[in-house]
Every structure is written in C-alpha cells, then in structure tokens.
Amino acid sequence: MTDVCRYAITILGTVTEEDLNTTSPLAVTVAEVANDRTQVTLLSDQAGMVGVIRHLHGLGLILLSIDRTPAL
C-alpha cells in the first residue's frame, strides 16, 4: 500500500497522453495502443493510483484491467 509500484491500466479506445494528462492528478505514460485499447502506466503508491482511476472514470473512459508490478 505504501510502496511505489508500476501500475499498468488498460482502457478501451484510443486516448492520447496529452488528453489524459491535462487535468490528471498524476502524470501517466501511454505505453501501448493496439486493437482499440490503450495501456497507460504510472509510478505511484496506491493513493495515487486510486486518484488516477477516479480521474479516468471521470473522463468517461472504460477501464479494462489494472496490473501492479514492483517499481524497479
């Protein structure tokens, strides 16, 4: 919960990094765009990740999955 991790969030549709980051609480990076899906990554603790999820939800995006791996 306290550790900073790498979260990979997959969203339905194609979204640009700029669109996502204009009003985001945390900067996210678009890692992959394929098959009408966009995967964004962020390095944060859980509080930051939850904030980003709410932000994406607020933008009307459909979340498909979230993966968590330890930050290097």
Binding site: S24, P25, L26, A27, Q46, V50, G51, V52
Partner: peptide, 21 residues
C-alpha cells in the same frame, strides 16, 4: 487518495509539496 485536480501540471512546474504514505 489523490484528488481529481490537475496536479501533474503543478508537479511539473515545481509548485507542489507531496507527503505520501
């Protein structure tokens, strides 16, 4: 949790102090 405010911009402009878990 991080509020739905454009904090990324503040962070980039070094206008934000953060204390986290």
């Amino acid at each position: 949790e991080d509020p739905q405010l454009p904090l990324a911009r503040l962070r980039a402009h070094n206008r934000l102090t953060e204390i986290r878990a």
